[in-house]
């Protein structure tokens, strides 16, 4: 299934899609795959696999802690691709969310006339990955990635923000494929007590420029918040709350997976109420 099909299927059910994020390699590579599969089983429609990076400027403390743990255990980009392969094998569309440098410098950067970007795109496609979400790469800085994604039939998911001008939203959605990622708040990732009042107007401004589905992320942590967001967006994106579920059970993986499944079920129920 592709990302667009997953969103279309949710729309046909008259609900929003649930997009779940976890960094690869957390708590370790095998444990990360188990966790992502549990999220698929409990109702995530699209999976985002995070590529842990040493300098994650858009992430709050929760995702930073998980990514740092994965890096401390020596995770490699090839392990992230292995994770994508294992999750995509379930049939649920799986994308990577990554800061730009690990893509540009994949396998040491340009080698034998092929850029890191081209080789990353080829390997992501062969792993069955559906595309990339690029939080620190905007389309105007992305000609190389856009060309590589087009060559390998990958989704390009760029972000729009409450501070984006209408012109930039139009430029961004024109470059997107799969869905558009709307950041609901001005701030870094992390669960928040209340959903943002900036998200609704941003979704409306985004929809005015595109027929692509619009997913809303940053801050959602429970079914009620998911229902609120689902009332105006095509997709509800959840990250830090999933990471928190695992962080809260550091010594008991089975309990962590149960917490993850319960949270997924709550959120999956939320997107059906919205």
């Amino acid at each position: 299934m592709t990302v667009s099909t997953a969103f279309a299927k949710a729309r046909a059910d008259d609900r929003a899609a649930l997009v779940g994020y976890l960094p690869a390699g957390f708590p370790d590579v095998a444990g990360g795959i188990d966790a992502l599969r549990a999220m698929v089983d409990a109702g995530c429609d699209v999976i985002e696999v995070g590529l842990p990076y040493s300098d994650p400027v858009m992430d709050g403390p929760t995702i930073q802690a998980a990514a740092q743990q994965a890096l401390d255990r020596g995770i490699r980009t090839t392990d992230v691709l292995r994770t994508v392969e294992a999750v995509a094998a379930t049939g649920t569309p799986t994308v990577i969310m990554t800061y730009w440098n690990p893509v540009e410098h994949y396998g040491g950067g340009r080698r034998n006339g092929r850029s890191g970007v081209e080789r990353f795109a080829a390997d992501l496609a062969s792993a069955g990955g559906a595309g990339l979400i690029t939080p620190d790469l905007t389309p105007d800085s992305a000609p190389e990635w856009i060309a590589a994604a087009d060559r390998h039939d990958l989704d390009k998911i760029f972000l729009v923000a409450p501070s984006s001008t209408d012109e930039r939203i139009a430029m961004t959605t024109a470059a997107c494929r799969g869905f558009v990622y709307a950041t609901a708040v001005m701030g870094v990732t992390g669960a928040r007590a209340t959903t943002s009042d900036l998200a609704g107007p941003l979704v409306a401004r985004t929809r005015a420029t595109t027929d692509l589905p619009v997913g809303v992320g940053l801050g959602v942590s429970n079914g009620d918040q998911a229902a609120t967001v689902a009332s105006y967006a095509d997709g509800v994106i959840v990250g830090s709350a999933f990471v928190r579920a695992l962080l809260d059970h550091p010594d008991d993986r089975a309990a962590g997976l149960r917490a993850l499944s319960a949270l997924t079920a709550d959120l999956a129920d939320g997107v059906r109420r919205g």
């Binding site: 800085s141 923000a161 984006s164 950041t183």
Partner: peptide
């Protein structure tokens, strides 16, 4: 050089 930054900061 260039500008590899989150969209949220581009307006600023």
């Amino acid at each position: 050089g260039g500008r590899f930054m989150p969209e949220a900061l581009v307006a600023a």
